[in-house]
Design a protein around this nucleic acid. Structure first.
Lengths: 144, 144
DNA sequence: TCCTATTATGTTATTACATAACGCTACGTA
DNA sequence: TACGTAGCGTTATGTAATAACATAATAGGA
């Protein structure tokens, strides 16, 4: 978890970007969370240590972290999750368990190629791909 | 386009559900639109013919139509689009052109199987899958 | 050093997306 | 008739995201 912070620092230094206080704070909170978080939960949590933190601050940090691939936005329910496989972005699908709400990352290089081809057949050139799933994770299946 | 309405009527009758006025209205508007629409555009458009239409009315209709597979919600940008391949739902990916904003549907049975297997390897059982893309469609590529 | 451009944050306000909760109507069925 | 169910209308509110403008910090060049 502190690994992630270190990775972020390294990544920023290499690319000449600043790993500022609000960015660090947001990443820390996400990294410490077992499950993806909603933006406004992040906002109130970020504000716990004294001064109020306003939406734009957190959204800006989220944009930044998403661009670096340190955080992913889950489109289905507008939540955000820290990325384990940080720094680098081969395409990743996010599967969220309906019971425990934890997110599992799954690589999908192969799938991306197939979809790119399928799109190309219709003359469509893909630049971004979102693959997300819902279901039940192993732990919850066993617990049931 | 009127096909879609007829299909909807048939589908409802078969399943014993009512194809009520607001549901018809919302589907008509979506079917007439070239591009996916935002919920609040739908709301104001639905209200054009006299009485105001309020958010819950439209959202309820949308939920209904989505469940029947007559309409799809595009998670990336919270828009809604009428489904050409109505009534039945093999899995469909939606690719949206960044230029003209039109949505293209692409079947992805094969991809679904691969992802299901990839998930199963990690003990994750998929029940829902979202596949969405962004890019440039053929027409816009040629026009550029 | 001083100026300026750039990058990022702070702050206020607002826009956009979605649903809770309640009451009423219409309809089918015992 | 009495009841349950499905659906709509309405008010109010909750939640997500951004516009617009002001301020601070820093780096590079004259």
């Amino acid at each position: 978890m502190h690994d992630l912070i270190r990775q972020a620092e390294a990544l920023c230094q290499r690319s000449g970007m600043a790993f500022t206080a609000p960015r660090r704070r947001v990443l820390e909170i996400l990294a410490a969370s077992e499950t993806p978080m909603k933006a406004y939960d992040l906002i109130s949590k970020a504000g716990e240590g004294g001064q109020a933190t306003k939406p734009p601050t957190v959204y800006r940090a989220l944009d930044f972290l998403c661009q670096l691939g340190l955080v992913h936005r889950i489109e289905q329910d507008a939540t955000f999750v820290a990325c384990n496989h940080a720094g680098h972005s081969h395409p990743m699908a996010l599967f969220v368990c309906n019971t425990c709400l934890k997110a599992t990352e799954v690589a999908y290089d192969e799938v991306a190629h197939i979809l790119e081809k399928a799109a190309e057949v219709q003359g469509f050139h893909l630049t971004r791909l979102v693959v997300e799933g819902r279901g039940q994770c192993q732990d919850c299946a066993l617990a049931a």
